[in-house]
Design a protein around this nucleic acid. Sequence first.
DNA 1: CGTGACGTTTAGTTCAAACTAAACGTAGTA
DNA 2: TACTACGTTTAGTTTGAACTAAACGTCACG
Lengths: 181, 181
Amino acid sequence: MNDELAEAREHFIQGMSRISHFWGFPKAMGAIYGAVYLSPEPLSLDDLVAQVGVTKGSVSTNVRTLERLGMVHKRVQLGDRKDYYVAETDFWKVVRGVLREREQNEFAQALNTVQESMEMTDTAVTTPEDAELAQFYQERMQNMQNFFNTLDNLVSTLIALDELRSGTIQRLFNRSTNSSS
Amino acid sequence: MNDELAEAREHFIQGMSRISHFWGFPKAMGAIYGAVYLSPEPLSLDDLVAQVGVTKGSVSTNVRTLERLGMVHKRVQLGDRKDYYVAETDFWKVVRGVLREREQNEFAQALNTVQESMEMTDTAVTTPEDAELAQFYQERMQNMQNFFNTLDNLVSTLIALDELRSGTIQRLFNRSTNSSS
DNA sequence: CGTGACGTTTAGTTCAAACTAAACGTAGTA
DNA sequence: TACTACGTTTAGTTTGAACTAAACGTCACG
């Protein structure tokens, strides 16, 4: 292939790598997505090993994560034992996938921990002089929990709406920018 | 202090620690914020060393980051050389701070890298057989850049609006949830 | 069966980020 | 000027996540 094109691809892949790392994913994962995204043809696992320059094991695990997030899709071809991958090109879907994953994992847990701390404060037997402090704790924790709940609702609402009819986020955005004052 | 209350605080701080780590910040940073957030009084650097259990150096650097993000505020007291810190309790402000930081740093860079890759593809001298591929690259990269631009605009719009009059995000949220159909 | 071409799993290694310990700079105080 | 009480900086260490190399399981086809 053309050297300059290859160089451009290289640069792009490196960029994806950085973005991936920045959002808390493995660098190789971003690089793999970049490679798939810039390929007109579905890529096999070995193709990716060649293009990205990491080992098969790494590609295997990372590509599985990408699939779980809905960032790539597996294509099996008849009479060919290899798995081929194509990129999801609807980035809003990608965002949804990531948000959903994050929401399920640590996000709910965060809510949980605050909830637990509140309950611990609740049931704590306090001396009169600590009662004031306990109430302070209650208020602060309650405020944080309210915020988390709002945020959680916001995210799941957006996901749900956008799944019903794609484009909710865009429309929300347009409403934000176009409406003057 | 009451043991049960202390335990609740401990648990809460640990939770903040996890959240911090999850969002790509040092765990100690979250813990420090948690401690400040649960304190009715401003806390000095040495207070934090005692409460969080990390060294002064770590507190020093992490608390500075927290201040840069607008998550805590420094309070200097007359006739006292110590710095005291209080927590920002408006979480939307906190979100804004984080988004702004992220936007400035890596977010803009991501846009940049894609831009550069596009230009490299642009100026690449292609043989006829590579011309098709080059065009494919162009399209894909352009799509991604459009998305990034949209996202970037969305974020900075939200930040700007919310700064003008706090509560934009909440109202946006309410509009999303309350409007039926 | 046996063999080769796959994807997956695992034990071990690498590496970068966060932390510690301690030196350092500075400003107020006697 | 020396001393103390701070916050900051830095050299070195720790830690955990991501990667590598290689063994493994499996399936198709002879």
